[in-house]
């Protein structure tokens, strides 16, 4: 790989938020704000795939105690600057069982992390979430999906492909869309209790309970 390009890739976490805001036309920030509204003072919050720590910081500002998990050490370095009060774990989402105890969090959050995983990984992580979540706690997942409506699906491909290219130029990364996420949640033994769509159904915010 080109040496100069490798150096550009190394600085990718610094540009991640800009690229994702552009790709989602601000929707990601909106989803994060709506997720944060569920958080109350004193809540134990787990942010899976916390990335650059922007959502962790929103939760901390509402008085929560936040633990951020991310496999990417570069992202965590930026997160530690953005939200220094949070605790961080540099682990893969597949290894949550070794680091987090049963029923230890009130709220478990995730934005654009599940779309990075394969179906087997998603189900494994959802089962871990069920174990880690306190009884009466809630899971809030914001992610990208492929819309089911045919017209929306056409718009999705027409709009997303050029936006993905532009985002790739800025951040050398992009997002993937999940399909059949409801089935994954059911297979993990949990239930979607509320669903909200954004950008013609391209993004969803799910509230899930045990």
């Amino acid at each position: 790989m080109s040496f100069v390009y490798m150096k550009i890739l190394e600085s990718r976490p610094e540009r991640y938020d800009l690229g994702m805001s552009l790709l989602t036309l601000g929707t990601l920030t909106k989803i994060k704000r709506q997720i944060a509204e569920h958080v109350h003072s004193g809540n134990q919050v787990l942010d899976l795939g916390c990335g650059t720590g922007t959502l962790a910081q929103m939760c901390i500002e509402r008085g929560a105690v936040v633990t951020g998990v991310d496999a990417n050490s570069g992202m965590l370095a930026v997160a530690k600057r953005n939200s220094p009060s949070a605790n961080y774990l540099n682990i893969s989402l597949g290894n949550l069982d070794e680091h987090l105890g049963d029923e230890s969090f009130d709220i478990i959050l995730s934005t654009l992390a599940f779309s990075e995983l394969t179906r087997a990984e998603r189900i494994h992580v959802l089962k871990q979430i069920k174990r880690i979540l306190k009884n009466g706690g809630k899971v809030l997942i914001g992610d990208e999906i492929i819309p089911e409506n045919i017209l929306a699906k056409c718009l999705y491909y027409a709009f997303r492909l050029p936006m993905r290219l532009l985002t790739w130029v800025i951040t050398q990364t992009t997002t993937n869309a999940i399909s059949n996420f409801d089935d994954d949640v059911r297979e993990a033994g949990m239930e979607i209790v509320h669903r909200k769509s954004f950008m013609l159904g391209m993004f969803i915010l799910l509230e899930i309970k045990k």
Binding site: M1, A71, L93, N95, D97, A120, E121
Partner: peptide, 26 residues
């Protein structure tokens, strides 16, 4: 994420942690 063995190992995205996660998930 589609990176080859040599580059992924050097970048720190192909680690014991990622292999252990895979062994567990599958």
């Amino acid at each position: 994420n589609g990176t080859n063995v040599w580059c992924a190992a050097a970048e720190g995205i192909f680690t014991a942690e990622t292999i252990l996660s895979h062994l567990k998930v599958y």
